Simulated scan of single mutants.
Amino acid sequence: MQPDATLSLAEVGRFNALADRWWAPDGPMAPLHRMNPLRVAWITRRLRRHFAEGFPGEILDVGCGAGLLAEALARDGFPVLGLDAAPAAIAAAEAHAQGQDLPLRYRSGRIETLIEEHMTFSVITALEVIEHVPDPGGFLSGLGAALAPRGLLIVSTLNRTLRSLMTAKIGAEYVARILPTGTHDWRQFIPPRVLSGMAGAAGLRTIDSAGMSFDPLRRQWHQSRDLSINYIMAFEKR
């Protein structure tokens, strides 16, 4: 894994700048606030099915930002370590979780450091992260290295299609302006078959996938079979 595989300084700076508005429901992270209940429900169903005899260990949420997913999973009773390279985002996450008595802790840093410390996790989540790293394949390899045997990796991202270009990039950033301009680079979006191939090269087996579709009239996200824009996938370590 190359040293720069998991980190773009430009992206870290972008998300650091958003840290103080991360938890505002109608702020720049509003799409993630609306998407989060769907993401959490999809993940928890798979965790409870995969670990039917009881959940071992801790979830590592890579690229946790200010903690939208990490905090929600902790409220559902899962121990969580949130990891992010943006220190301002981690500070916002810690401030928001303060006083809630959740099984949740945060750390500012990179996946390479945890690998060097020989840390492994039963579950790793990386949602809306992989499209922001310079080397997606290297990033997946790092996540796989930190995953315990039979552990689950859950990744969500955007498909590289004409529909995603028109809606998730042009529509969201320049027309509806529900995302800050420059949030995404469409060239970094990843087709599901490519993501599965990268995961296979990292020693991971694809076990599940679903589309995450937005209903603009109800302003709600729902699970679907349409993977042409937003999608989520689960992988098991071989």
Results as ranks from 00 to 15, higher is better:
residue 94 E to V: 14
residue 123 V to E: 01
residue 45 R to N: 14
residue 61 D to V: 07
residue 46 R to Y: 10
residue 175 V to W: 12
residue 161 T to P: 06
residue 107 R to C: 07
residue 104 L to F: 11
residue 59 I to R: 02
residue 95 A to C: 13
residue 99 G to I: 10
residue 90 I to R: 02
residue 41 A to P: 06
residue 92 A to P: 04
residue 171 G to W: 05
residue 45 R to G: 10
residue 117 E to Y: 09
residue 83 L to K: 01
residue 151 G to Q: 03
residue 77 G to C: 11
residue 169 K to H: 12
residue 166 M to R: 15
residue 112 E to H: 10
residue 168 A to I: 07
residue 94 E to W: 08
residue 50 H to G: 09
residue 32 L to V: 11
residue 168 A to Y: 01
residue 91 A to S: 13
residue 55 F to C: 10
residue 140 L to F: 04
residue 122 S to A: 15
residue 126 A to R: 02
residue 62 V to W: 00
residue 48 R to M: 11
residue 149 P to C: 12
residue 133 V to C: 04
residue 151 G to D: 03
residue 152 L to D: 03
residue 69 L to I: 13
residue 73 L to Q: 05
residue 173 E to S: 08
residue 132 H to K: 03
residue 129 V to K: 01
residue 148 A to M: 14
residue 163 R to D: 08
residue 87 P to F: 08
residue 125 T to L: 07
residue 120 T to Y: 07
residue 52 A to F: 12
residue 175 V to M: 13
residue 53 E to V: 08
residue 85 A to C: 14
residue 71 E to W: 07
residue 119 M to V: 07
residue 107 R to K: 11
residue 81 L to Q: 04
residue 52 A to R: 15
residue 58 E to H: 09
residue 137 G to T: 01
residue 91 A to R: 09
residue 87 P to C: 11
residue 142 G to T: 05
residue 140 L to H: 00
residue 132 H to Q: 05
residue 130 I to Q: 01
residue 49 R to A: 13
residue 119 M to C: 15
residue 156 S to R: 04
residue 162 L to T: 13
residue 133 V to M: 05
residue 153 L to F: 05
residue 111 I to E: 00
residue 151 G to S: 09
residue 154 I to W: 03
residue 72 A to N: 08
residue 124 I to H: 01
residue 87 P to D: 07
residue 166 M to W: 14
residue 116 E to K: 13
residue 123 V to T: 10
residue 112 E to C: 09
residue 59 I to Q: 02
residue 144 G to N: 01
residue 102 L to E: 05
residue 68 L to H: 10
residue 89 A to V: 06
residue 58 E to I: 12
residue 85 A to S: 12
residue 92 A to F: 03
residue 55 F to I: 09
residue 144 G to S: 09
residue 53 E to P: 04
residue 98 Q to A: 15
residue 159 N to I: 05
residue 58 E to M: 15
residue 69 L to E: 01
residue 123 V to W: 01
residue 54 G to T: 14
residue 80 V to A: 05
residue 68 L to T: 07
residue 67 G to Y: 03
residue 80 V to R: 01
residue 48 R to D: 15
residue 123 V to N: 01
residue 84 D to C: 07
residue 176 A to D: 07
residue 32 L to Y: 10
residue 85 A to P: 06
residue 125 T to G: 06
residue 66 A to P: 03
residue 128 E to L: 05
residue 68 L to C: 12
residue 56 P to N: 13
residue 57 G to H: 09
residue 85 A to G: 12
residue 164 S to E: 03
residue 117 E to K: 14
residue 70 A to G: 11
residue 79 P to N: 10
residue 174 Y to K: 15
residue 88 A to M: 13
residue 43 I to Q: 04
residue 77 G to A: 11
residue 62 V to K: 00
residue 167 T to W: 10
residue 46 R to V: 10
residue 96 H to Y: 15
residue 171 G to E: 06
residue 40 V to F: 05
residue 128 E to P: 02
residue 33 H to R: 09
residue 88 A to T: 08
residue 66 A to C: 08
residue 128 E to K: 02
residue 59 I to H: 03
residue 151 G to N: 06
residue 89 A to H: 03
residue 136 P to A: 05
